[in-house]
Amino acid sequence: MNKPEQYTTDHNRGELFISVRNAAVVYNQKRSIFKLRKFEALKDVSLDIHAGESVGVIGRNGAGKSTFLRLLAGIIKPDRGTVINTGVKVSLLALQVGFAPELSGRDNIMLSGMLLGFSKDAILENMDAIIEFSGLQSHIDVAVRTYSTGMSARLGFSIAHQLHPDVLLIDETLGVGDKAFQIKSSKAMKEKIKSNQTVVLVSHNAQTIAELCDRAIWIEDGVAFAKGLVDEVLWLYNNAAKLEATRKMGKNRDIQK
C-alpha cells in the first residue's frame, strides 16, 4: 500500500500544541476475581497537532477514535508512549457536559464554562453571544430539564464554540441537534477552522472530514494506518472500504453457490 508522504505541509505549520508519540491504551476488563482480560484500545498512534490546524480522525466503530480523543483532551494517560501538551487549553466539544437539569440554561452556561476551565468574567463576557448562537433566547431562564434533547445539545455546542479553547475536539459521532442546527453548527465550525481555530474532528463520515479538515489520521484497530494530507488519507480510506466491500460481496457469492 502506498502510504502518503507524511507531514507534507511541515514547512507552513504553526507552533506545536500537542504531541502524541507511540501512544497505547490498554483497558482492563474484569471478568471475575481472578480473570483479567486486557483490551488494547490503542496500540501505536503518533500525531503532532500544531496551531491553526484542523485534523480529521477517521476509522470504523471501535477503532479507537474516541480513546484517541480522550488522550488528546488529557482525560486519560497512555500506558505506553507519551502525550505532551505544550500548555494549551484543550476542550472536548462535549455536548451537555455536566448540565444540572433543575437549573436554568443561563446557570448551566456558567457551570459548564467553569468546568471547561474558564473564569467567571470570561463566561459573563461571552454569555450573550452563547445565548444568541444557541437560539434559545426565549428558554434561557427556564430549567434545562424542560429542554428537548436537541435544545440541550445546541446549548452544549454553543458554550464550547463561543468560549474559544486553544484546541477544540469534536466527536461528530455524537450528533448535534436538529437538521437546521446541524447546518448552522457545521457552518460555524467551518468559519472557526478558517479563523485559525485548532480543531480535531472525529467522524466516520469521510465527506465531513474532507470538507472541514486539512489533515487526517486514519485509525484502524488501534493503529494509525495512514496520516497526512486529508485527500490522500481519505483516498486510501475510501479505496480500502471499496476493497472490503467487493471482498465481502465475493464471499456472499461463494456462499450462494
Binding site: A100, E102, L103, D107, L111, L115, S119
Partner: peptide, 13 residues
C-alpha cells in the same frame, strides 16, 4: 467557582 455553582445547583435540585 465551579465548586460554588455546582454546590448551589445540587442544593436547588
Amino acid at each position: 467557582g465551579y465548586i460554588f455553582y455546582s454546590t448551589r445547583a445540587k442544593l436547588i435540585t
